[in-house]
């Protein structure tokens, strides 16, 4: 039943390695982009607040498949953006990361914004009273405390992101779900085994993430 694993026809580890890479690059990108978005949404400048709000509400409510397929058809095939890559699989990978960052950043932003709301207003007032500017107050006082209070929700976002990387299969990125599609076509006598193995692979990636970040969340919590 599990002969397909040992047949040498499928590079399961290689496919999951692409999944891991997609997850890691997208996670770092989403964290940065989500933080910037959250900064915009609490900014005193109305234009930035407006952009942040509009962006989050549009992108968060758009299906990820549309964003990722749209980035291939729109950005690459229509507008010709190659994102500095030459080989087509690299272009697909980078477009997928771009789409995942654009999408996941909105969830990071909203998690972070709820974290910002847990920081007592007096913290910002004390910082402003010392003469710190808006960016300093945000980066030195508010965000460090906000991040500590949203480690657990961010773990959820990271787990969702890990599983969302499967959408990259839609534009031909050779990650785990793409390989699974091939296996399903060729190993129709072992469908449940194929699904089971791929599902287990994702559980093995996401379970430790949740456990580790749950532990981190308790360690870094701000005592008041």
């Amino acid at each position: 039943m599990f002969e397909f694993l040992t047949s040498g026809r499928y590079d399961l580890l290689g496919a999951f390695w692409v999944t891991v890479q997609l997850t890691l690059y997208s996670a770092v990108g989403s964290l940065v982009w989500g933080t910037l978005l959250a900064g915009m949404r609490v900014s005193p400048v109305p234009l930035m607040r407006g952009f942040g709000t509009a962006y989050v509400n549009v992108v968060r409510n758009t299906p990820l498949t549309i964003i990722i397929v749209g980035s291939l058809l729109g950005l690459y095939q229509t507008l010709g953006f190659e994102l500095g890559a030459e080989r087509s699989e690299d272009i697909g990978f980078r477009l997928a990361v771009l789409g995942l960052v654009a999408y996941t950043g909105t969830f990071v932003c909203e998690a972070l914004r709820s974290g910002i709301n847990t920081v007592p207003v007096g913290q910002a007032e004390a910082a402003r009273a010392l003469g710190l500017g808006f960016t300093q107050v945000l980066t030195l006082i508010i965000l460090p405390q906000a991040f500590r209070s949203v480690v657990a929700p961010l773990a959820n976002v990271l787990i969702a992101l890990t599983k969302n990387t499967t959408v990259a299969a839609a534009i031909g990125v050779a990650e785990a779900a793409y390989l699974m599609k091939n296996m399903v076509e060729n190993e129709s006598d072992a469908l449940f085994a194929v699904f089971g193995v791929v599902a287990l692979g994702f559980v093995l990636l996401t379970l430790p993430t949740g456990l580790l970040l749950g532990w981190v969340s308790k360690r870094v919590a701000v005592k008041r």
């Binding site: 007096g122 913290q123 004390a126 009273a129 006082i141 500590r148 701000v222 005592k223």
Partner: peptide, 14 residues
């Protein structure tokens, strides 16, 4: 240049 002390201290908790 203007020092301020608050009722609830507001020391930076982190």
């Amino acid at each position: 240049d203007v020092g301020m002390v608050f009722q609830s201290f507001n020391l930076f908790a982190h």
